[in-house]
Every structure is written in structure tokens, then in C-alpha cells.
Design a protein around this nucleic acid. Sequence first.
DNA 1: CGTTGTTTGTGAACGAATGCACAAAGTGCT
DNA 2: AGCACTTTGTGCATTCGTTCACAAACAACG
Lengths: 247, 247
Amino acid sequence: MTSAAEIPDTETVPEEPSGGGEPARVAGGIPEATVARLPVYLRALYTLAERGANTVSSDELAACAGVNSAKLRKDLSHLGSYGIRGVGYDVEYLVYQVSRALGLTQNWSVVIVGAGNLGRALANYGGFLTRGFQISAILDSDPSLVGRPIGPVTVRHVTELESVITSNSVAIGVIATPAGTAQVVCDRLVAAGVTSILNFAPLVLNVPDGVDVRKVDLSIELQILAFHAQRRFAERFGQESDSAAEA
Amino acid sequence: MTSAAEIPDTETVPEEPSGGGEPARVAGGIPEATVARLPVYLRALYTLAERGANTVSSDELAACAGVNSAKLRKDLSHLGSYGIRGVGYDVEYLVYQVSRALGLTQNWSVVIVGAGNLGRALANYGGFLTRGFQISAILDSDPSLVGRPIGPVTVRHVTELESVITSNSVAIGVIATPAGTAQVVCDRLVAAGVTSILNFAPLVLNVPDGVDVRKVDLSIELQILAFHAQRRFAERFGQESDSAAEA
DNA sequence: CGTTGTTTGTGAACGAATGCACAAAGTGCT
DNA sequence: AGCACTTTGTGCATTCGTTCACAAACAACG
């Protein structure tokens, strides 16, 4: 759930109505729910490729990705018709097509703001940033952290934010600061031209239209888990004292 | 979109059909999409309470939470009818009701497995674990980390996993290990009785029915951002070379 | 070449989520 | 008490997402 339901926060510019009864088909033609699953498929494909698989059926790939095979096929059908009936999908070719659809054939420059525990974890997580992303800088306001090497870069002072962004044409900003400074950092990122932001600070960021914010929030996830745990608990034993089931 | 969309992974046990035309109403009566937003409302309510607000209208609260006010009212209506027409909601009372709905009136015991950068970040993030959650232990397999104090606890060896869980009646496990060991850790958590798992490792965990897994995955979020960034880019300038828009 | 078996791609039914728009229900002023 | 104003709670239409089930397309083999 999510993503949650995740759960989308994008402000998508609506296209012309385009007649049909299809499920929306925003510009780019790929529904949000599908976009959120493509990275999962991509990871499964890489795993399969490492195992030496040349082709894969929708059933196998769906099992690896933890989804139902009909959903997988419908998702992939939004990218084009890249399967072979009676055989399956060519792994390498599908990797390329999914990557292209996600925009990973170009390299994206990322700046991380905040070199605390979380920022360090992100910068060090080589596995995360393998393909398509490159950390241009990690910034912090604490002078005692500046100059310290973390992962592929060294910490720079947050005053350099604007110059780092313009000189590296950074398109994605990651906010790993405390909640108190997150909005200020966000405003500066946006003013400097960043239109994609990944927010780890526990607050709702305010951004103008045209800026895409995604949030990752531990406490929210924990609370959702707590809800389900409580529900399971109440189901197993009798109903709780006063649930919302009164007439 | 996190969650957005985030995106559900729960195996919910369907209740009796219950007749009506309402949107599903799983056991507990609260739709998934609503559950995912309740923590956001709760945080906004705490912020408002700190500012000294006694009551709040759906418009204000919706603005704080970054959603549409009709959606907010519909969400809250699933908990019961706790507003006063013409006035709004009593902040303190609503905090209590939302907390109760989420199962935060009891304390949940959490164990973090993996004391690397990420595990340390989580254990130190006091802001995350304020209300309703308590870190019972943080575990790692690296002997050089054992004994080191992190946040409210000290690192213990992962061999103690089972005993920690049973003696603290831990209900929630957080996996902050590398991908290679995540499944093994997961299996051990499940075998020890944990039914709620928050997974930070970049892989799809395999769990039996009745276990609830939520994942937090940086690379997926980045890839979704990249997709939208690419789309915006292609929209601004002419269409890309070959999009999927052929007849 | 036809037949059998496999797997994709998708039409169509269903189910969930969103947002509008308004009646119902309250406050406060005169 | 009556009236004007505010805000909740919800029925309804619409959009979005999932799943089923099957025809179309291909491989393999005799």
C-alpha cells in the first residue's frame, strides 16, 4: 500500500480529452499506477538477467515482481507490444524498453541536502543509485561536516546549493534535513530550477505547479502498519470495546 | 504518489458482503486510501494544536494536509461523525479519534534489524517515533557494532532476534539490511511471530498470508520522479524521437 | 501443412477512489 | 423566536485501477 499506495501527489497537466474510454492516458500514455510498478519490474528483470535468463514469461516476471500476471501484461502493453506470443519477453530488450519509458536512458543529476544520518545513508547506498542517477553533491549547513567524504562525493556547504544546481544542471533534489528547514530548502531548490523533489522530512511541502514532489515518511508507514496490526488483532479476538460500528 | 500512491500490498481478509454500494469497507470499515492519509491528518492536527488552535474547519485542515476538503471530510466520516456543523472539528478530540482509529492508543514495540547508516538514521530519528512506537532493539550481525549506543538503545547481535521479539512482544519489524540478507531476516521475523514488516531493502519480500509488508524504496521513488521529469521535458520541447504514439 | 500447445494483448465487467454539489444541522445576531 | 451564515456529511456521477477470460499470434512437431 501505498504507495502507497503509495499514493500519488503529482500535479499532472491534463491533455486534450482524446475521446476514448481508456483509463485517462495522461500525456506520455502511461497511467500513474503503472509507472509506480515499472521500477519493480525493472529490478526483477535485472535479477533475471544476472541469472542468465534470455526470455521470461509474464507469469514468471509477475511472480518475481509480486504482482498478478494480467496486471503485468497490461502494464507492459502501455509501453508497446514487446512480447512474443507463445514465448514471452526478451529480457534484455524489455530492460531497455522499460528503462527508456522511465527516462533512465539519460543520466539524472541528483543533489542531496542534509548530511545527517539519513543523508549519509542515501549517499552511501551505492545499490540505490546504480543506473541512471548520479549524485552531484551532498550539502549541509553544519561547518563541521563540510569537507567530509561521503560515498562518491564530499560534503559542501549549503550556501553552494544554487551554484551546484546550475553548474551540474541538477534536475532532482533530495531533502534529508530536519522538518524545520525543509520548506526553506525546498523553496531554494525550486527557485534554482529543480522540478523534481524527493522529500524525507516529515511535513507537507508547499510547491508551485509544475514541481513534482514525492515523499518518503517512516512514521506514516509505521502508522499504516499499526492500523492493520490492530485490525488483525481485533479480528482474531472479539471486537474491541467501541468500534465505529454503531447504528 | 508515494505512496501513493504508494501502493497497497496488503492481503485483506474480506468481510461479509454487507449489502450496500459503498466502496468496499473492509473489516474495520476504513478504505485503504483513507488509512494512508490519516497519518498526514494526524500530523497536521498536532501542528495546529501546538499553534494553540482549539477547532479547525475541514478547509483549513485540508490545506495543511495538502488535500481537497471534500476528500478530507469523506475520510473523517469513515471514523464517525466527529465534526460540528457550522464550527468544524475539535482539534484535541479529533487527534484522539484519529489516533484510536490508527491503533496508536496502544504502544507498539519495534525492532530494527541492521545498524548500518540507514538503521542508525532510523533509530536516531526521534521525531519519527514520538507517539505510539517504541524501539525495543536494534540488531546487527557485525560484532564491531554490538554494544554501540544508538538513539535510545544499544546495538545487540542479530542472534538475539528471537529472544528480543518474544520478551518484548514486538509486533513490528523494520528491515534495514542489505538486500542479500533481507529475506532471511524477514523469515526469522515471521517465524518469531512478527506480522507487520517495514522493508527498506531493495527487493520484493516473500511472506506467508497474514503478514503485512510495506516497502520504502529510494530507487523506485527516484525512477518515478525521472519519469515525470522526462515527460515534462518532452512536453515543453517537441515530442521525443519515438514515443509510443504511433497508430 | 495442419494440429496442438503456449503465451501475449485486450475487451469488458467490476470495484475503488475522487470530487461536485447540496441538504441537514448547527451558530450567532437581532 | 426568526433569520442569515457557516460548515459538515453524503448521494451521485465520473474517473481510475484491477481482474477475468478469451481471441489472436506465434512455436514446435509430426
